[in-house]
């Protein structure tokens, strides 16, 4: 999986701590979301959709693996992808909360995917030019995948929004439910601002406009409106999560933690 990536170059210790922390955010977004999307297997509305959602989950898992492996290398504390995935506690996970929300019904899943895939597409598009060659390489591969995810979410948003009254109700409901978690994706902080000045990271604030424009275009075509929701939830990047993450991690980490030191 990571054999074709450039080796982690020599990075100054202070900066490497920052790069580690930043990479972990991207990794946790992908890992937690992959775990969630896997829950659709054998449950999707049609067989072909089951395959599509499973493929999306696999793409995300692949991104998570590359990012976690790189994070471990940068940290230099001999933590590999498995160690990071299975042996960190909830407060050490730094995904944005939107990724950990339960899958809900198909309307919610599509609404969430529209937002997250648009965000990841905008992010990876810019991250391809990162001055960190490994992040750039991971982004170059990932951008093609999330382009497809975004297209998938878009196709479904159109069909649900402009389908039947029931489907319009459900996707509208999904958008209303997910909207309080959107703002967090575009929050900036000192860590990411520092790394953005050296061109390593992409400041999330830069992503808000292109994502917003894209969402408005799709919602309009789908005969849907932007949710009128003022509530905003945040905290994921600081390790503060909804109650949902605990259960997700318990299930995901159970086997590895039951047999510490075992190889799988």
């Amino acid at each position: 999986m990571t054999a074709d990536l450039p080796a982690a170059g020599a990075v100054a210790p202070a900066e490497s701590a920052a790069v580690f922390a930043y990479t972990l955010r991207l990794a946790d977004d992908a890992l937690v979301y992959a775990q969630r999307m896997g829950e659709w297997i054998a449950k999707a509305p049609q067989l072909e959709e089951d395959v599509a959602l499973a493929n999306i989950a696999l793409d995300l898992l692949g991104q998570a693996r590359s990012l976690l492996t790189y994070a471990g290398e940068v940290e230099g504390a001999e933590r590999g992808e498995d160690e990071l995935a299975y042996f960190r506690d909830e407060r050490d996970f730094v995904n944005a909360q939107i990724f950990e929300l339960p899958i809900g019904d198909f309307g919610f899943t599509v609404a969430r995917m529209l937002v997250t895939s648009s965000y990841q597409y905008a992010l990876y598009t810019l991250l391809q030019d990162s001055t960190d060659p490994v992040l750039a390489a991971i982004a170059a591969k990932a951008v093609k995948e999330v382009d497809y995810h975004r297209d998938h979410a878009t196709q479904w948003t159109l069909r649900l929004g402009d389908g039947t009254p029931e489907s319009a109700r459900r996707i509208s409901g999904g958008l209303v439910e997910v909207w309080p978690y959107v703002a967090e994706l575009f929050e900036s902080d000192e860590l990411v601002r520092e790394l953005a000045t050296t061109g390593v990271a992409v400041d999330p604030e830069r992503l808000e406009d292109p994502v917003s424009t894209y969402l408005d275009t799709v919602l309009l075509a789908a005969t849907l409106g932007r949710p009128d929701v003022a509530v905003r939830h945040t905290g994921g990047r600081r390790g503060v999560h909804t109650e949902h993450l605990g259960y997700l991690l318990a299930e995901m980490q159970y086997l590895a933690r039951s047999h510490p030191g075992a190889r799988w």
Binding site: Q46, L47, E48, V51, A52, N55, D151, H152, Q155, R159
Partner: peptide, 17 residues
């Protein structure tokens, strides 16, 4: 063969399957 509601989805499903 596969089932899809319309042509754009059929092409995409074909890519996945």
């Amino acid at each position: 063969s596969l089932h899809a509601p319309d042509a754009p989805m059929a092409v995409r499903n074909a890519r996945d399957v």
